[in-house]
């Protein structure tokens, strides 16, 4: 499919971070030189099943970290917990040195950790430009009183619009700015969602399956955007099933299975690790690790549905 992306980083921070990572041991929960996100003892159970049970995990800043694992490994749940969209049963975590445990999702986002969703959440009945403007932070006109007095926010609105147009141009969506977001293709929506997340200049972008449902023709440019993001100083953590993508653009890979972190390391090494292959594929050894799209979303749901069904049964 895709050729390896050339990632000759020019940003000295990225080079330094990568160099530092070379000296890090390849064991689960290992400490990183300059961690951005640190999670401790985070546990979330659904009906008696541990969906997430992460003892310790550090995410290095200024690099691209991939979070992989079989379906039902708890990757998305982990994302939800970190970003305040779900509450853990136990655990604490810090972002950029500040504790985020129990902090609501909007404040997590304000602190600089912005996420996207597995099923894109483009705001369909708003134009592409309005979608983008919504991403900007600290807008005066978002106060109910100030909203009535246009002069108070006219200047800021202009700045926000300029920034939005710049980003749209970068993501090649500038010709679509007055279309409804709902009329975009799946891949364009992914791009829009990513661009929208960048409106707030986040420190860490968390992408939940950025490649899922994206037209192969767009894959290349999406990968380019993600690496460009890192090179411009934003750290990236992403969940992905597309192993080619993981191989090509990530600097570090974390493997989860049954809610736990089971392996960590540079992409090549981790993906050749027999333990990972076993954990990842179970008995389906004949499947290509690089083509994971075989595993459909349904099976994730089915595993969880079963767990919930059992829990319900127990309750009766």
């Amino acid at each position: 499919m895709a050729e390896p992306i050339v990632t000759d980083a020019v940003n000295p921070d990225v080079v330094a971070a990568r160099d530092a990572l070379r000296g890090v041991a390849h064991t689960p929960g290992v400490a990183k030189p300059t961690p951005l996100l640190v999670a401790d003892g985070v546990r979330r159970t659904f009906g008696g099943v541990n969906a997430v049970d992460v003892e310790h995990l550090e995410v290095q800043s200024n690099v691209i970290t991939a979070l992989i694992g079989p379906n039902g490994a708890g990757k998305t749940t982990f994302f939800n917990l970190m970003t305040g969209f779900d509450r853990p049963d136990a655990g604490s975590w810090t972002f950029d040195g500040k504790s985020l445990a129990g902090v609501p999702a909007s404040r997590v986002s304000k602190s600089g950790m912005v996420r996207t969703f597995q099923l894109t959440k483009a705001l369909s009945r708003m134009t592409v430009l309005e979608n983008m403007r919504l991403g900007a932070r600290d807008q005066v006109g978002e106060g109910m009183g100030a909203a009535l007095l246009r002069p108070l926010w006219r200047k800021q609105e202009k700045e926000v619009t300029e920034k939005a147009r710049d980003l749209l141009a970068r993501f090649k969506l500038d010709t679509k700015e007055s279309d409804f977001a709902g009329s975009l293709s799946g891949g364009q929506r992914k791009l829009l969602e990513m661009a929208r997340a960048l409106m707030s200049d986040p420190t860490l972008v968390m992408l939940d399956e950025p490649m899922a449902g994206v037209n192969p023709a767009l894959t290349q440019s999406l990968l380019g955007h993600i690496t460009a993001l890192r090179d411009s100083g934003t750290s990236v953590l992403f969940v992905e099933h597309d192993m080619h993508m993981v191989r090509h653009i990530s600097d570090w890979v974390v493997v989860m299975a049954e809610g736990k972190v089971v392996a960590e390391g540079p992409p090549k090494e981790v993906m050749d690790d027999q333990a990972v292959i076993d954990a990842y594929l179970g008995s389906h050894h004949d499947t290509d690790l690089g083509d994971d799209s075989l595993l459909e979303e349904e099976s994730v749901i089915s595993a969880e549905a079963m767990a919930e069904l059992e829990a319900e049964e127990e309750a009766k």
Partner: peptide, 9 residues
């Protein structure tokens, strides 16, 4: 009383 919490995402 017996409902399940919602999952997001």
């Amino acid at each position: 009383i017996l409902g399940r919490a919602q999952r997001i995402g």
